[in-house]
C-alpha cells in the first residue's frame, strides 16, 4: 500500500469513528431516563360520598416528586361494581367527556365512543378506557396512580 493511500484510509477511519461516536453520544443524551412506573395510592374521597349509580367525574389533588397536580377520574357504577376510569382516550390522548343522554363517553378528537364500563362502542380507540385500581381504607376511597 502506498503512503498516500494509507493516509487517506486513516483519515476516513477517524472521521467515520468520530461521527459514529458523537451520534451515539447525542442519541443517549437526548433520550430520557426510562423510569419504571410504580403505583402509589392517593386519597380520592370519603367512602360515603361515592355515587350510588351512574357516572361521576371526580377531581383529586396529588403530589408527585414534590410537584402538586390535580387529576381527574370517572367513577362509574356498573351493576355492583365500582370502576375508576381514566378520562384519557386510548386513541391519541384527548380527554373524553360523559354524555349523560346517550350514557356513553365521547372523545372530542376523533369521535371515539365508550360505554359506561369503558368498553369501546365505536370509533378508532384500540383499547377500552384504562381502569385504575381502587381500595377502601378506613372509610376513605384511595386511588392508585402510576408515578
Amino acid at each position: 500500500m502506498k503512503r498516500r493511500e494509507f493516509l487517506k484510509r486513516t483519515i476516513n477511519f477517524f472521521v467515520a469513528a468520530a461521527a459514529l461516536f458523537s451520534s451515539a453520544l447525542f442519541f443517549r443524551f437526548v433520550s430520557p431516563k426510562f423510569r419504571l412506573s410504580s403505583t402509589e395510592y392517593f386519597l380520592l374521597m370519603p367512602e360515603d360520598e361515592l355515587p350510588r349509580r351512574g357516572v361521576k367525574k371526580v377531581e383529586f389533588p396529588l403530589q408527585i416528586n414534590g410537584k402538586k397536580k390535580r387529576e381527574r377520574v370517572f367513577i362509574s357504577i356498573v351493576g355492583s361494581e365500582i370502576l375508576a376510569l381514566s378520562p384519557v382516550c386510548t386513541h391519541l390522548g384527548c380527554i373524553v367527556t360523559w354524555d349523560n343522554n346517550a350514557s356513553e363517553f365521547v372523545c372530542p378528537c376523533h369521535a371515539g365512543r365508550y360505554n359506561s364500563a369503558g368498553v369501546v362502542l365505536s370509533g378508532p380507540p384500540p383499547k377500552p378506557l384504562a381502569r385504575l385500581p381502587l381500595k377502601i381504607e378506613s372509610g376513605n376511597v384511595m386511588i392508585g396512580w402510576k408515578v
Partner: peptide
C-alpha cells in the same frame, strides 16, 4: 387547563393527518 376538555386543531397543513387517523380503528391505528 387539564380539567377542561378541549378539541384540538392542528395547523392547516396537518389537518389531513388529523382526519386520516379517524379511518383506522383498533389495531390499525
Amino acid at each position: 387547563d387539564l380539567s377542561r376538555q378541549y378539541q384540538p386543531r392542528p395547523e392547516w397543513y396537518f389537518l389531513w393527518l388529523f382526519e386520516l387517523v379517524k379511518f383506522f380503528p383498533g389495531w390499525s391505528v
